[in-house]
Write a protein that binds this DNA or RNA. Structure first.
Lengths: 224, 224
DNA sequence: TCGAAAGAATAGTAATACTATCGAAAGATA
DNA sequence: TATCTTTCGATAGTATTACTATTCTTTCGA
């Protein structure tokens, strides 16, 4: 039984649905690879066009600018994690177990999970770790927020906060704990790799076990 | 008794010490105001030059590029917070009390505290909240880290982690908790303002009391 | 087979992120 | 007082970025 994943994103993020054409899928596939390789600031539509044997103008038919493309990718990521969490917690009634599965999904969603052919989820996670914050740290946050460009992230926060409240209905900060789990996951993977003195954990050869343990330790203590 | 604060920063961050000339201080003063007003991406040396009645080339004599200027400002901020914490916890032996003072300093360092004439610490905090992450989310992290460009932040993390370990020597994640306090502070101030569904607290008229309460609640639970 | 849409090719523009050179002025030194 | 040096303003120039616009060919669906 193969599970088909179809990701649906806010229509304002793109000018033309990239999933529905070979060029569009190529834009997604290679923008992920290139942003990961060169970083978001060095990434340009012109360079991407060269790599996929197309033109700058053609890419502009799909995305208004590179910021919206990043937003598209980041939303994709959170939407995908949300879908996986939904699948993996489907038949589990114990909220404690569900939160553990959520944490595992946040840390290593890309391992052994069904994905989409033209998206390398593991590299996409790298991008979200390194560049994700730039998606919402912009002068246009309020405007973009009103258009629903952060919905995927907010929906996931909502889902996770409900599980938290189920575990401990008296806990006063379910949303803060949820978003903190997201931010902490990605921050500490980044710290372990680049700024190890900012964390206590280490990540050897992409073994994210220590991150997962730390997040479980934090939530257990907080929700007791 | 007036307290004189002198901030010393890594020399690699600038080409010429900006604190020592009127032009240099003008660059600092107005870059803070302009980055806050227009955001980091829209901020350019050309625009800054126009505002301070100088030239692009003159600004380039002080800073290699705008990224290093941001790094300078962010380091300044953490160095300044560190100094305040050192002053305010000086005669306090109880580590629990010291951590509370640290949290208060993180949340509202700029209130009622001595500062530097040409730096608006409150606006500088705004910049660190909105743009701070961009300082270390760059393709050159490793290189910049090796030059000590993140020292101010790491030193503060070190100081705070020691207080945490003093409170509970068995707590396994003192560094992670320290950095988490920093990140959480700034994230949730930002969320409350721009993405309220990502947090449980609210910030009315710059009253950051709820942020402080939340951070105290989290640390208390974690260190018990 | 006709029409519409997709996209390749090309051109062009304003702004950005610099680099380089020159000369005036101001401050320190002898 | 002469001079030496550092500072900085003025000006110019370049490669790249972030777009926009137009035209022409191909393809695909009705």
């Amino acid at each position: 039984m193969a599970i088909e994943i179809k990701i649906t994103l806010n229509e304002g993020l793109y000018l033309k649905e990239p999933q529905e054409s070979a060029l569009g899928r190529n834009i997604i596939r290679h923008s992920i690879l290139m942003i990961d390789e060169f970083g978001f600031e060095a990434f340009t539509f012109k360079k991407l066009a060269r790599v996929i044997n197309s033109t700058e103008a053609s890419i502009y038919r799909y995305f208004e600018n590179k910021h919206l493309l990043l937003l598209y990718l980041v939303n994709w990521y959170w939407e995908w994690v949300h879908t996986l969490i939904a699948i993996n917690t489907m038949n589990i009634s114990d909220p404690n177990k569900r939160l553990k599965i959520i944490i595992r999904s946040l840390v290593s969603a890309s391992e052994d999970n069904p994905g989409v052919e033209f998206v390398n989820e593991s590299i996409l996670h790298s991008i979200v770790i390194s560049e994700g914050g730039k998606a919402y740290h912009t002068k246009d946050v309020d405007d973009e927020n009103s258009k629903g460009f952060f919905m995927s992230y907010k929906n996931l926060a909502n889902t996770v906060s409900k599980v938290i409240s189920e575990i401990n209905p008296k806990f006063k900060y379910p949303y803060a704990l949820a978003t903190n789990l997201f931010e902490m996951t990605n921050n500490h993977i980044y710290f372990a790799k680049h700024l190890p003195r900012l964390t206590d954990i280490s990540v050897k050869e992409n073994d994210l076990n220590e991150v997962e343990k730390m997040l479980n330790y934090f939530t257990d203590k907080l929700l007791k």
